[in-house]
Design a protein around this nucleic acid. Structure first.
Length: 486
RNA sequence: GGCGCCGUACCCAAGUGGCUAAGGGAGCAGUCUGCAAAACUGCGAUGCGGCGGUUCGAACCCGCCCGGCGCCUCCA
């Protein structure tokens, strides 16, 4: 049984969906005004894996992830570039999909956009106004936090503490410094919709409440996002949603930790961020390989811990993955009908799967889950040395594929070993590697084999060196033939 | 000022009261190999930031200290 850390309770709670067999989850997506960075990748990946694991556990998952497509930053960006807001949001939604596809992040089952839910938003604000929990100031509508007595229960903050930290430029028209905008009257030139309070646009927090309720119901199971959303975003969502319905909003609140650069938070304001596409562009490996490297890297730390990004950590992920794909190559070799390690390995597979499930059940402990796969890799290599039948080889490869699918790893049939490295802009090491075709490599290997058979090791080594200079590595089999990889 | 997090070997990273402190990467040595590569075997923290305390027993609980970080403002 899965236990997840619930920010609301501060505990690892046993996860039990409201409706047996069915999970409804909502994750705060991105504001589409710029390219996504690795932090967005981490968040998307964490919830992608949560979703995959819930499905693996036999649950049907209804997964909503929104696009915030009306917002101050979008308006600002549109004005800077002299284009419409639609132009900006369309561009970056597409960029988001491109990036997420490369990372292997599956699409959510629902991807609502704020601008498509204005009526829901207005209806929700009207309820809050009618209940006396919101008030109008000119064209704006504010949520009145002191009308929601348990405000602060998610972030464990007291109203008094919050006052002390309130910003200098508090809007004097607000009744309480922490009151927040539900509806903003729009200035000329800004996107606007008609409302009972005049032309305007939604505040940031209200859209998530309205869309989550529209698609998942007033109460649903899981609500997720980055740690930084706990306050004020999710706190405000709770206040306005629970305020409006009188019911609990989300039951489990799940938050992922940050990606850091040199122990520091990565963020736009600090300017120390890497975009996802920048990482792919810089990589010397094909996109599929780079994507898996990134996934492995991002999952090798527990989702709530800070994670330091560096070229070295990516390279380590690559090396770790090479080990799996080396094994898969070995498993593809022709094999006898029976092997002495067949039965023991099948038992080992069962234990490995249990270890994997136990790790994932413990608040999505992906590092421990990956360790279980690594353990199985070692055991399988040993079994291979001892003797493994073709059937068992296929079986264990399928096991890696099935369990790896939960993490979105180990699915490839031609790792970088057999695909052409792409040329980098600089045309250096990786560019040179791209030289030889499979046929040319095959010819050189055949020539080397002939040289070996005639004990002309000098020529054989020369041919191997030529291949090596093109980035091709040879592995000789016991029977004298060779396999190769780039 | 308020709330909270982190500090485990060269690097990454699990473990949070009780057998020999997972796993990976890198390194070194060995087996195999014509030599390599891959694989396998072995080595690698008497120790878990420091000092005290609780306990039969602590990396795990408590206190203090040192170091680093986050939120309180848009932010995954």
């Amino acid at each position: 049984m899965l236990r997840v850390y619930n920010t609301l309770t501060g505990n690892k709670d046993l996860f039990e969906p409201m409706v047996p067999g069915k999970v409804r989850m909502y994750v705060c997506g991105v504001t589409v005004y710029d390219y996504c960075h690795i932090g967005h990748a981490r968040s998307a990946l964490v919830f992608d894996v949560l979703r995959r694991y819930l499905e693996y556990s036999g649950l049907a998952v209804e997964f909503a992830k929104n696009f915030t497509d009306v917002d101050d930053k979008i308006i600002k960006r549109a004005n800077e570039q002299g284009v419409s807001c639609e132009r900006i949001t369309t561009t970056y939604i597409q960029a988001y999909y491109d990036d997420m596809d490369k990372l292997g992040v599956r699409r959510a089952t629902l991807e609502p956009r704020a601008t498509a839910h204005i009526a829901d938003i207005i209806a929700l604000v009207e309820i809050l106004v009618a209940k006396g929990m919101a008030y109008r100031v000119e064209g704006d509508v504010y949520f009145q936090v002191d009308r929601y007595p348990v405000y602060g229960r998610l972030s464990k903050r007291k109203m008094d503490d919050l006052q002390a930290g309130a910003r200098v430029d508090v809007d004097e028209r607000k009744r309480h410094p922490m009151d927040f905008a539900l509806w903003k009257g729009s200035k000329p030139g800004e996107p606007s919709w008609d409302s009972p309070w005049g032309p305007g646009r939604p505040g940031w927090h209200i859209e998530c409440s309205a869309m989550a309720m529209r698609h998942l119901g007033e109460t649903f199971d899981i609500h997720g996002g980055g740690m930084d959303l706990i306050f004020p975003h999710h706190e405000n969502e709770i206040a306005q949603s629970c305020g409006a319905t009188g019911k609990e909003f989300a039951r489990y609140w799940v938050h992922n930790g940050f990606v850091q650069i040199n122990q520091e938070k990565m963020s736009k304001s600090l300017g120390n961020f890497f975009t996802i596409r920048e990482i792919f562009d810089k990589s010397e490996w094909p996109d599929a390989v780079t994507g898996e490297m990134l996934r492995y890297f991002l999952l090798s730390t527990h989702y709530r811990s800070p994670l330091d990004f560096s070229d070295q950590s990516l390279a380590e992920a690559k090396n770790a993955l090479n080990g799996f794909y080396d094994l898969f190559d070995r498993l593809k070799e022709t094999a006898p009908d029976r092997g002495s390690a067949d039965l023991p390995l099948r038992e080992t597979m069962g234990r490995a799967r249990q270890a994997f499930v136990d790790a994932m059940d413990d608040d999505l402990n992906t590092p421990s889950a990956v360790a279980a796969l690594q353990k199985l890799r070692g055991d399988t290599n040993k079994a291979l040395d001892a003797g493994l039948s073709g059937d068992t080889r296929r079986l264990v490869r399928e096991e890696f594929r099935r369990v790896g699918a939960v993490l979105g790893l180990l699915q490839s049939d031609d790792w970088q070993f057999k695909s052409q490295p792409k040329r980098t802009a600089s045309g250096t090491s990786a560019g040179e590697k791209a030289g030889l075709s499979d046929e040319e490599i095959g010819a050189k290997i055949a020539a080397r084999l002939a040289a070996k058979q005639s004990k002309n090791y000098k020529l054989a080594d020369q041919l191997r060196a030529e291949l090596a200079s093109q980035g091709v590595t040879i592995e000789d089999r016991p029977d004298g033939t060779s396999r190769w990889k780039r």
